[in-house]
Amino acid sequence: MNDTLRQSPSTASAKVAAVTLGFWIAKVAATTLGETGGDWVTMSLNLGYLVGTGIFAAIFVALVWLQVRAARFHPALYWATIVATTTLGTTMADFFDRSVGVGYPGGTAIIAALLAASLFAWHRVEGTVSIRSIDTPRAEWFYWVTILFSQTLGTALGDWTAGDDRGGMGLGYEHSALIFGGALAVIAALWFGTRLSRTALFWAAFVLTRPLGATLGDFLDKTHAQGGLELSRLWASIALLVFVVLCVVLFPQRAARADDAA
């Protein structure tokens, strides 16, 4: 991938969060919240995957519109939009996997194709998919659509490995979490020990944190018979939301800069 910086001379920072340890902790918590929150709306409230997707899609578009209109980086708005992508990603993945009836492998393939198309179009138009280049409204929309498909793919991957129905691998939530946690450890080793593209490693890590959060979320709210703790989806979501807010407040938040590694 081309990591060429395309910021205008007068722009020192992008309107997205810098990639730090605090970023990844908040990201995993937000993805777990997306799983429990999405399931609460579609399953606990019995609204279904299509209605749930419509609700979260409207919230997603509204928040991205606010992001694009903002003059600078706002941590609360940024993380609210991240949470919106995780909840919408959950309902979209469930809609493909279950309502459309293509199963977990089919849903994963469809969403992976959408993510690849988004990255290809972004790179074709902007010349880079680096987060350092997000300094125009068009680049911001590319960023957020790609984030959405990344979250959706992560959900599908988590369901595919953990589930024992719809073509799932049946590995369970604990084993799936260990697998994705191990994959993230490999990416971290590549980040610190090699000169591989930081942009490629960032997007790989971004995708893989989502199935880790998805399996953790399922572990919290699924029934004992399904291998979960059977906690209330609503209360689990509230607890996770509080944790995400604490992450945003306690961890230093700043916009990505031209001299950042990612």
Rank of each mutant, 00 (worst) to 15 (best):
Glu35Ala: 12
Phe142Asn: 07
Gly163Met: 14
Thr194Lys: 06
Trp144Ala: 11
Phe96Val: 14
Leu47Asp: 10
Phe251Cys: 13
Leu47Trp: 15
Phe73Asp: 11
Ala84Glu: 08
Asp165Thr: 15
Thr32Tyr: 12
Arg124Thr: 10
Arg138Thr: 10
Ser232Arg: 04
Arg233Lys: 09
Glu140Met: 10
Val41Asn: 01
Leu77Asp: 03
Thr152Ser: 15
Ser133Tyr: 10
Gln7Tyr: 05
Gly52Ile: 12
Thr152Cys: 13
Asp164Met: 04
Val102Ser: 08
Arg72Asn: 00
Ala70Gln: 14
Ala183Trp: 13
Asp39Leu: 07
Ala117Ile: 14
Gly106Gln: 01
Val207Glu: 02
Thr215Asp: 11
Pro9Leu: 06
Val61Lys: 08
Phe251Leu: 02
Ile131Val: 15
Leu47Thr: 10
Pro252Ile: 09
Leu190Ile: 00
Asp94Val: 02
Pro252Asp: 07
Ser10Met: 09
Val186Leu: 15
Ala177Gln: 05
Thr36His: 05
Val19Glu: 12
His224Cys: 01
Phe206Lys: 06
Ala93Met: 03
Ala84Phe: 11
Val102His: 10
Ala177Glu: 00
Thr42Glu: 01
Ala205Trp: 02
Arg254Met: 07
Ser10Trp: 13
Arg195His: 10
Ala93Leu: 05
Val125His: 08
Leu115Trp: 06
Val129Cys: 10
Ser232Asn: 00
Ser8Asp: 09
Gln226Leu: 12
Ala185Met: 08
Gly52His: 07
Ile25Pro: 05
Thr86Pro: 05
Trp40Gly: 05
Thr194Ala: 12
Cys247Leu: 09
Leu88Trp: 03
Ile131Ala: 07
Phe180Lys: 00
Val68Ala: 03
Gly103Asp: 10
Trp141Glu: 09
Ala188Ile: 04
Pro9Phe: 06
Arg195Asp: 15
Ala256Met: 13
Tyr78Ser: 12
Thr42Met: 05
Ser8Cys: 05
Ala183Phe: 12
Leu212Trp: 00
Ala112Met: 01
Gly34Cys: 09
Val51His: 05
Ser8Asn: 06
Arg132Lys: 13
Ala200Lys: 06
Gly228Gln: 10
Leu47His: 08
Phe120Glu: 02
Asn46Cys: 14
His224Glu: 14
Thr152Lys: 09
Gly181Trp: 00
Ala177His: 01
Glu35Asp: 09
Ala93Gln: 07
Asp218Cys: 08
Ala76Lys: 14
Ala261Asn: 02
Arg254Tyr: 04
Ala205Gln: 11
Leu50Lys: 13
Phe180Asn: 00
Leu234Glu: 02
Ala17Val: 02
Val244Lys: 12
Val83Ser: 03
Arg233Asp: 03
Gly34Asp: 12
